[in-house]
């Protein structure tokens, strides 16, 4: 079973919830946490990093054999991403634009193209007690996150419960992280920004057809607006985490939610059972 933690707005507490959820459930069963926010992965900042292993993740990019290439431009004219161009009879390749679809190879009449791996980031695995977790880190300057996110997603094992920390937003990266999961927790906060972006995130998970519920973080005086909104949208608020300076200070120091609020572990276990 795969549970994803997502939100439209950044900084609402996705990582806080994903880490606390994974740690709480790891007390009762085998759990794996996958940090798919590869542009800014943060889960490892809150966990011990025992038995750490790192591997490079590559994507496939075409490489040309200039001896064989005739400069006919068939590859370039079939590339939907403008990742190849012929100038002065010579083929140029722009790896940062390549989506690794492999179409150029198929259109080369003289088989001058081969695919070669190019690093885009790393995948790190580590353990904190019974919790196994992995995170992807996109190389700086590398624009495309989805291929790395898909690699991190492949770490999920069928038998285990997998918790996914998704990137913010609603674009292709968020979809790559959340797609194929069994349930999505949408973390929001009772502010106009939080509410606006919750609307966008809701629309997205509805579009994906994944069952979902809301976790209201920094809950307090303005909750009523989120409650009314959720009631109108027909989505349940599964849990509230109260606004607290003490919690904010603990999280700022790399503590998990279970440190200032140990009782929340029990609530996550109950929440999981209720799904």
């Amino acid at each position: 079973m795969t549970l994803a933690v997502a939100s439209g707005k950044g900084g609402t507490g996705k990582t806080t919830v994903a880490v606390a959820l994974a740690l709480s459930l790891a007390g009762t069963r085998s759990v794996q946490l996958l940090d798919c926010d590869v542009e800014e992965p943060n889960t490892h900042l809150f966990l011990r990093q025992h038995r750490r292993t790192v591997r490079t993740i590559n994507t496939l990019v075409p490489r040309v054999d200039p001896e064989v290439c005739t400069g006919c431009g068939q590859c370039a004219s079939h590339c939907a991403f403008n990742a190849l161009a012929v100038t002065g009879g010579k083929l140029m390749i722009f790896p940062e634009l390549c989506h690794s679809c492999g179409r150029c190879l198929r259109h080369c009449p003289v088989s001058a193209l081969t695919e070669t791996p190019v690093p885009i980031g790393t995948l790190t695995q580590a353990e904190d007690g019974p919790l196994c977790y992995s995170w992807g880190t996109l190389d700086l300057g590398q624009p495309m996150a989805p291929p790395l996110i898909r690699e991190v997603r492949k770490e999920a094992s069928v038998e285990e419960l997998t918790v996914i920390d998704s990137p913010p937003g609603t674009s292709c990266s968020m979809i790559a992280a959340v797609r194929g999961s069994d349930y999505v927790f949408l973390v929001t906060e009772p502010t106009p920004f939080g509410l606006n972006d919750l609307g966008l995130a809701l629309e997205t998970v509805k579009g994906l057809g994944i069952p979902h519920g809301v976790i209201l973080n920094r809950s307090g005086r303005a909750d009523a607006l989120v409650e009314e909104y959720c009631a109108r949208a027909g989505v349940g608020i599964l849990m509230k985490i109260p606004e607290s300076r003490r919690v904010a200070e603990a999280l700022a120091r790399g503590k998990t939610l279970l440190d200032p609020m140990p009782e929340i572990a029990h609530r996550f276990v109950e929440l999981m059972e209720s799904l």
Binding site: E39, A145, G169, S173
Partner: peptide
């Protein structure tokens, strides 16, 4: 700007 370091930020 957007959060992150990927294509939208670049």
């Amino acid at each position: 700007g957007p959060p992150g370091t990927g294509c939208a930020v670049i």
